[in-house]
Design a protein around this nucleic acid. Structure first.
Lengths: 199, 199
DNA sequence: TGACAATGAATGAACATTCATTTAATTTTG
DNA sequence: CAAAATTAAATGAATGTTCATTCATTGTCA
């Protein structure tokens, strides 16, 4: 392999097709669920031959586990967007909370797939563990807030449940009911989450 | 059909086999997920022939939708267990919250199936709507508490997200990590949920 | 014995995956 | 530099398997 080949591989085919496959999979999985999106359909949606998917993934299981991790990583990255060490802690929490909400609202298909897979026996333990690592920046922020006595000294699991779980639930409700999520409601909901964890 | 037959049908076979099928389905769906529990396996687990399932259900889709409703109903009934009109409102909320937690902990398989299906496109809109009706006793309690200014005047969706969503999230975390859910943690978590909604 | 319940082997459709072949890109050679 | 040779990428028809569902047959019981 010479340098040109390496560049091509890195920037063109692999990225393009793999991305196309991921995108197609996200769209279809969200719309139809795992059980009724065959590989052949994903291939068609991605404008790729059925066999091509198997150049990039060992099989369907591996593909979906990788897709899940990819989405989790995107989500995790979006959480800390705009964060500065110098922020007041409470502002940082509002930022992270809003980032979570925005991701789940704007990237509805990704969020749908995440939710569908999160509790499915289909996702392997290794994948779940990998997914936890991705979250570490947020965990650091929580540690800091606990040390400064700004939030209660909850175990991580309880903090996460009180502060983030409601966001997902709300987005699901609004998505199902096809109702607007107003700024008023966002403020109310954040205040509730904050009241649950603040000291 | 004579009266004896009707009685027999109502009390013996139908109930027994249907129940056996439901139980088998819950166990397998929770363990293996929808995509890899074939009807034949459900039949075997229920000690019933494959064809028998089709005496009680039109097809797999109908079976799963009915199963989902059945579970939701059991869950909903368990929520109000022990409730008395005369209770102080805050005690009633703690009761309902603990009932929710107990159900999700003790009936882990049912809870797992519920979670797996809740966000799946597999569940039909009609089923989701039917599932909402089942919840009405709790909604009445919430109305009462709002009127008495004991909890904040949140829209139902926000109340639900703040007060109930964390319970499910916590149970899932503990189930995955195979850790004990201590009484201490339960107290902490309830206090958080209550702080989120109380006035 | 008649009426219904239950069975489970058989059927056919759907699907994941393979692989022989084609197309495209890259390198070598004269 | 162009043509030939090599290597890699991509294709999609074919394969074998899995599975939901059916239905001819058998069992049950009033």
């Amino acid at each position: 392999m010479n340098i040109h080949l390496i560049l091509r591989v890195m920037t063109q085919q692999v990225t393009d097709k793999k991305e196309a496959i991921y995108e197609a999979a996200i769209k279809l999985l969200n719309e139809r669920g795992f059980h009724s999106t065959p590989m052949s359909l994903i291939a068609k949606e991605a404008n790729v031959a059925a066999g091509t998917i198997y150049l990039y993934f060992k099989n369907k299981e591996e593909m979906l586990n990788k897709l899940y991790l990819e989405i989790k990583e995107k989500y995790s990255n979006s959480l800390m967007r705009g964060y500065l060490e110098t922020m007041p802690v409470r502002d940082a929490f509002e930022l992270v909370w809003r980032n979570s909400l925005d991701f789940k609202l704007k990237r509805g298909a990704e969020f749908g797939v995440m939710e569908q897979f999160k509790n499915s026996p289909f996702i392997k333990k290794a994948t779940t563990e990998e997914g936890l690592k991705i979250f570490s920046p947020v965990i650091k922020l929580v540690e800091r807030a606990k040390r400064e006595k700004i939030i209660k000294d909850y175990p991580d699991s309880i903090f996460h449940a009180l502060f983030f779980a409601p966001v997902g639930e709300l987005v699901k409700t609004h998505t199902i009911q096809r109702t607007e999520f107003t700024e008023e409601e966002k403020k109310l909901a954040f205040q509730g989450c904050w009241d649950a964890v603040k000291n």
